[in-house]
Computed example of a mutant assay.
Amino acid sequence: MRAGSVVLIIWLVIGGFAAAQRHYFDDADTSCADFGTLTLTIVAGPLNYFGVNPKVHCETPQPSK
């Protein structure tokens, strides 16, 4: 159990580094798609360095006029 936890933490830290290198933490104005892409990049972890470039496309509901 302990080894799995350590691997998971290292996996997520590597994903955080990948997101930082792509400057996903720089923008304070975050949309649904930006947040999804950031989260997916962190979860993908080391796969980012093997060509995985996750992108999320979503639209938030707009207020009625």
Rank of each mutant, 00 (worst) to 15 (best):
I9C: 08
T60L: 06
H57I: 02
Y49A: 09
L38V: 03
I9D: 14
V56K: 00
Y24A: 14
S31V: 12
A44T: 07
V43H: 09
Y49F: 15
F50L: 11
D27N: 15
E59D: 04
S31Y: 04
G36Y: 09
R22S: 13
T37L: 04
Q62Y: 00
L47M: 12
A19P: 09
S31M: 06
V6E: 15
F25T: 07
T37E: 15
T41W: 03
S31Q: 03
V52M: 10
G4V: 01
A19Q: 06
A33Q: 11
H57P: 00
G15S: 04
A19K: 04
D27L: 13
D26A: 15
C32G: 11
G45Q: 01
W11Q: 08
H57N: 11
A20Y: 11
A33P: 12
T39C: 08
I10M: 12
I42V: 15
K55N: 09
V7E: 13
N48K: 10
P63A: 02
I10N: 07
P61M: 02
G45D: 05
N53F: 07
V7Q: 14
F50S: 10
K65A: 05
T30M: 15
G4D: 04
L12C: 09
G51F: 03
V56L: 11
I9S: 08
G36A: 07
V56N: 03
Y24H: 14
Q62L: 09
Q21H: 06
G51L: 06
N48M: 04
G45N: 03
G16M: 09
V7R: 13
K55E: 14
L40Y: 11
V56T: 05
L40T: 11
R22H: 06
T37C: 12
I14S: 12
G45T: 01
T60V: 05
L38I: 02
T60W: 02
A18C: 03
Y24L: 15
A18T: 08
G4A: 08
G36L: 07
V6M: 04
T41H: 09
T37Q: 04
G16V: 08
E59M: 01
G4S: 07
F35H: 13
F35E: 14
Q62I: 02
V13K: 05
A19Y: 04
V43M: 13
F50N: 07
T41E: 03
G4H: 09
T41L: 03
A33L: 03
S5N: 11
S5L: 15
T41P: 08
A33I: 02
A44W: 10
L40R: 14
P54T: 04
V43Y: 13
G45I: 02
V13F: 12
I9N: 11
T37A: 05
A33H: 04
W11Y: 11
V52Y: 13
L38C: 10
I14F: 12
L40M: 13
A19D: 07
T60R: 00
Y24I: 11
H23G: 12
N48P: 05
I42C: 06
D34Y: 02
L38F: 15
L12R: 06
R2P: 00
P61S: 05
D27Y: 02
T30P: 05
L8F: 14
A33F: 01
T41D: 02
M1L: 11
I14N: 02
P54I: 00
K65I: 00
R22D: 13
Y49S: 11
Q62C: 00
T41G: 08
G51R: 01
